[in-house]
Amino acid sequence: MNYFNLPLEDWTNWFVNDWLLPNFSGFFDAISAVLASFVDAVTNTLLFFPAEVIALIFILLSWFFAGRGVAVFSLLGFIYLGAVDVWIESMQTLSIVLVSTMISVLLGVPVGILAAANAKVERAVRPVLDFMQTLPIFVYLIPAILLFGLGGVPAVIATFVFATPPAVRMTNLGIKQVSEDVIEASRAYGATSKQLLLKVQLPLALPSIMAGVNQTIMLALSMAVVASMIGAPGLGSIVLNGISQVNVGLGLTGGLAIVVLAIMLDRITQGIGQKL
């Protein structure tokens, strides 16, 4: 099958090392600085308040959006996080998840809207999403480190790449599922495209969009351990330590904390989707 030799490796390395880095390092440094300060700000805010205050906020959110059972679960979960002494790491993980989810939603939802409105955009976007979801994570971790250095920032970028597709797909789907009858009626009464989007399509697509956001958060949390491999602080690094020391107990301690955060965030965002 080897009809000709494709020097993809050399080309890619040349592209990244000899062209992208020298020409755009300033640009990537700027992004890096902005993202780093953003992640730090969120982490510092979460850690500024006493743990009890943060826990109470999340317990109340759970109660309001997901009911009493989930609130009780959150309470027990937070007691666990305190009892195994992983509070700081939990908040570090949470801030990376929140920041990357925010970027995913801010970029993913508009792209989903565009894709729903325009078949060409959709055709262009779909393979990109497939790529983002299936390309092994480690493949883009390498350039992420090269471009953004070690730490929280490449973790946010890698998480963004992995976790954005559901936000785009579910937004696209949600808008397309809005019944043609309702759209036709709106147009008949003289709705502009903007009014149609804001008053009809987005409100009716909201449950679907929230399901996408929920999936984005879940995927972001599942990236926590991988993120720690490129130097992101948080629960992932506890698990990573457990692995490297063959310390089953340490691994479980960190792993369970991730599960606690995941279930809590999942129930809250699902609840928001259903309430809207």
Binding site: D181, G190, A191
Partner: peptide, 21 residues
């Protein structure tokens, strides 16, 4: 066109076309 639809033509549909939310 939008102005005319708004001011002169109201429409009633077989499937109602109401906004469910």
């Amino acid at each position: 066109l939008i102005e005319t639809r708004r001011e002169k033509l109201a429409m009633v549909f077989q499937k109602f076309g109401l906004l469910p939310h």
